[in-house]
Design a protein around this nucleic acid. Structure first.
Length: 739
RNA sequence: GGGCACGUGGCGGAAUUGGUAUACGCGUACGGCUCAGAACCGUAUCCCGAAAGGGUUGAGAGUUCGAGUCUCUCCGUGCCCACCA
């Protein structure tokens, strides 16, 4: 017998399968469509173990579903624009385009060694003009709809990446990309009105089929609270009103979730950026409910961009208010709660969200140019559809400037254009779009990646959407996942897509740590190179090891274990040796049928780890036999095929089974055969196990009690006690209650 | 401070969803094979105990004939959010 030469086998079959063997038609006769999606990668370097975990493991599900007669779309592409790729390029002094596309080329090769069943014919690269033409087009649809606006606000500025960031991209006041502390700057930026969708993003979560942790994280991020706004007149400010001075100076509006504590108000606190902050020291506000005068303060704890940026201070009820009151010698009023009538009279119901509008301008080169033009006379205009895409020009100086403008601003030839409306002189917007805009709709493009006339044809989309299964990283819960849900809803309102939600089912996978239990990083020196592992033990072993390491639908973190991967390799070696035993004997044991059942159920439940353990148990049973029935071994190979596609195909082929194992149907089990004739019945006395006996399946209650009581170890216990009650669980258990 | 998830051997993890806790894999020990080692194969491996037996799922209580699983309190870990009124 030849030995198991993984590299020869894997190369051979990867070549035979070629690039087109998983080309997925939109319609396949007799087969239901299934859209299996994994968050596409950033081409920032080589494939790492995390990529293998993200793509090789769901491939098991893809292959399993195909063998079960589904027409499975498992697409791949590259999220090619944006900071990660650009920063890596800048570090190396390379043009981002050359760097990114070089990476894509090498990652394609690495992906090929995975043996994953991607449909490469549908690959999308977000930095291709053929793709971003439609990113621009969709952006303009939102613009036309009034969902895009320009506003000067406090924004998060990353001094290292020299660009603004959306709220979602700031973690612990640090840039999500580079970890630098962000600064607050007042800048005029393009915003998308995601807040218009806050309520729908929230309510539609209820019906979503995804883990509770995702729902609560999004709920918290959206941060809905219901309360009321209350107007406090400023004492002596009435003359301002009569003289026509702005209303803001004559009153302070506060937001509160507890309008019923109105009688406990002993001060008003303003955020430092509130229009009245400078004058607060000299102001008195009048409580509308009892006409009491209360002082006005400026307090750091009042957040300027939440509510009205002003708070009514109720020290008796709010800890921060109390703290502030004690520090400033403000009296604490013990309160009578305001009646519903009073609350209704002096306040207006109001709902507040923590969610902010999505700042999408980026002062960086490597992104989609924002397709808007500013004319001196007629203001902002959309680039006409016929002029799309607005191509990102090839330039030499793409280093971010830090002056609040993208490097594109220096390319005068590109910037200066004619106004599409009046023909006068105008300038292009020089900021680029946040990468999360690119990735908000990529899964739509997979359904129709080559379309030159539309972002995707309606018919193609309806063949696949919504995505049946989406797997990705937990870090995207309040970023990509939230953005793309919003984007889809906006497109739904405009009439461009048919569903309110893009994903029917979503899971967050866990992640793989280094052997030391730390996050893999160059500085820790604990990085596992998947290419090296594949070289040593083969892609099948690496795939299967990652599937075996823990349940896939939980956000656990699993340390890479060298012994563990060796164990999987040993298992595959044993499987390889099993082919020697193929012969004539009885087929279709209970264990075989039990295994088919368990493996099928476990794969569906994403418990690849226990599916593999069931295959191991079956293979052990085979090892203990003189011969393995040809039919049984064929069934085993078919179950192995999604996990170890190359090895299964080789054994299938070498042992003269028909065609490709991957085109063979998934084995069926017979429920009746999974049940052994005899069962073990456990005997408990007062809940403790005291014995067990073997009986024919379906044994009667009376017989079971008699057999149980007859067991010496049980009889001994029972002889000292009085039986008060007995329970019988069919084919499982006899339980005595005795005293 | 708030929310969510979780806590099982030396380690990754199983447990038919309330019914024999620790499947499968790693590690370890001993044995086989070998001049020798690696690899491979076999046996053992939750703890105490010579055994009979007893104990054990972070701690404690509750419900139940029976709890890793359900309920409550506490302790601890991880992730997310955070002067959000």
């Amino acid at each position: 017998m030849k030995s198991y030469n993984h590299s020869a086998i894997e190369k051979k079959w990867q070549k035979k399968w070629g690039k087109n063997s998983y080309k997925t038609p939109d319609v396949k006769k007799g087969a239901e469509n299934f859209y299996l999606l994994t968050e596409f990668p950033y081409p920032s370097g080589n494939l790492h173990v995390g990529h293998w975990y993200a793509f090789a493991v769901p491939d098991i599900l893809a292959r399993y579903l195909r063998m079960n007669g589904k027409n499975v779309l498992y697409p791949i592409g590259f999220d090619a624009f944006g900071l990660p790729a650009e920063n890596a390029a800048l570090q190396r002094g390379l043009n981002p385009r050359i760097w990114t596309y070089g990476n894509i080329a090498s990652m394609r090769k690495q992906f090929a060694s995975m043996g994953a069943s991607f449909d490469w014919s549908r690959e999308v690269v977000t930095a291709d003009p053929a793709y971003y033409q439609w990113t621009q087009w969709l952006f303009l649809k939102l613009y036309e709809r009034g969902l895009v606006y320009r506003k000067k606000t406090n924004v998060n500025w990353c001094p290292k990446d020299k660009t603004v960031l959306a709220n979602e991209q700031v973690k612990d006041e640090k840039c999500e990309r580079c970890g630098t502390e962000v600064e607050q700057r007042k800048m005029e930026q393009w915003n998308i009105k995601i807040t218009d969708y806050a309520e729908r993003l929230l309510t539609d979560l209820d019906a979503l089929d995804c883990p509770e942790e995702i729902k609560t994280a999004q709920r918290n991020w959206i941060g809905k609270s219901t309360g009321a706004e209350i107007k406090f007149e400023i004492k002596g400010a009435s003359f301002n009103k009569t003289q026509g001075t702005a209303d803001v100076l004559s009153e302070i509006v506060v937001f509160t979730t507890r309008p019923d504590t109105l009688f406990g108000v002993s001060f008003i606190a303003l955020a430092p950026s509130h229009p009245l902050a400078k004058e607060a020291r000299n102001l008195c506000a009048i409580n509308p409910a009892n006409n009491e005068e209360v002082p006005v303060f400026v307090a750091d704890y009042v957040v300027d961009d939440y509510g009205t940026g002003a708070v009514m201070g109720v020290p008796a009820h709010d800890e921060r208010d109390r703290e502030f009151a004690l520090k400033n010698n403000i009296p604490i009023k013990n309160t009578d709660f305001a009646s519903t009538e009073v609350v209704e009279k002096f306040s207006t119901k109001k709902t507040q969200y923590k969610l902010h509008d999505w700042v999408v301008s980026r002062q960086r080169y490597w992104g989609v140019p924002i397709p808007l033009i500013k004319c001196e006379r007629c203001g902002w205009n959309a680039v006409p559809e016929k002029d799309l895409p607005v191509k990102l020009p090839d330039i030499k100086d793409y280093v971010p400037t830090g002056d609040g403008k993208s490097p594109l601003a220096k390319v005068r030839k590109w910037v200066e254009v004619k106004c599409p409306k009046c023909g006068g002189s105008a300038e292009r917007e020089t900021d680029t779009l946040d990468t999360f805009v690119d990735s908000s709709w990529y899964f739509l493009r997979y359904t129709d990646p080559k379309n030159k006339k539309e972002f995707a044809a309606r018919k193609k989309m309806s063949a696949w959407l919504p995505v049946d299964f989406y797997s990705g990283g937990a870090e995207h819960t309040t970023m990509h996942l939230l953005y793309s849900r919003f984007w889809h809803k906006a497109l739904f309102d405009i009439g461009l897509v048919a569903d309110k939600e893009p994903y029917a089912h979503r899971i967050n996978r866990g992640f793989i740590l280094g052997t030391d239990g730390q996050k893999m990083s160059k500085s820790h020196g604990n990085v596992i190179d998947p290419d090296e592992e594949v070289k040593q033990v083969g892609a099948d072993t690496v795939r299967m090891y990652l599937a075996f390491i823990g349940p896939y639908n939980e956000t656990g973190s699993y340390p890479w274990d060298k012994g563990g991967i060796a164990g999987i390799r040993r298992f595959l070696e044993r499987v390889w040796r099993l082919q020697e035993k193929i012969g004539k004997c009885e087929a279709g044991s209970a264990l075989l049928h039990q295994t088919i059942k368990k493996v099928s159920e476990d794969i569906t439940a994403l418990k690849f780890n226990t599916a593999i353990s069931a295959l191991m148990v079956l293979s052990k049973a085979f090892e203990n036999e003189e011969t393995i029935a040809r039919e049984d071994f064929g069934i085993f190979l078919r179950m192995l095929a999604p996990f170890a596609p190359h090895l299964a195909e080789e054994l299938w082929h070498e042992n003269k089974y028909n065609g490709s194992v991957h085109k063979a149907p998934w084995p069926a089990y017979i429920e009746a055969t999974t049940q052994t004739e005899s069962v073990t019945i456990v005997v408990q006395i007062n809940g403790k196990m005291r014995g067990a006996f073997s009986a024919a399946r379906g044994v009667s209650e009376a017989d079971a009690f008699a057999r149980a009581a007859g067991l010496p170890e049980v009889a001994r216990w029972l002889s000292q006690k009085q039986i008060q009650k007995r329970f019988f669980v069919k084919d499982k258990l006899v339980s005595f209650v005795a005293s």
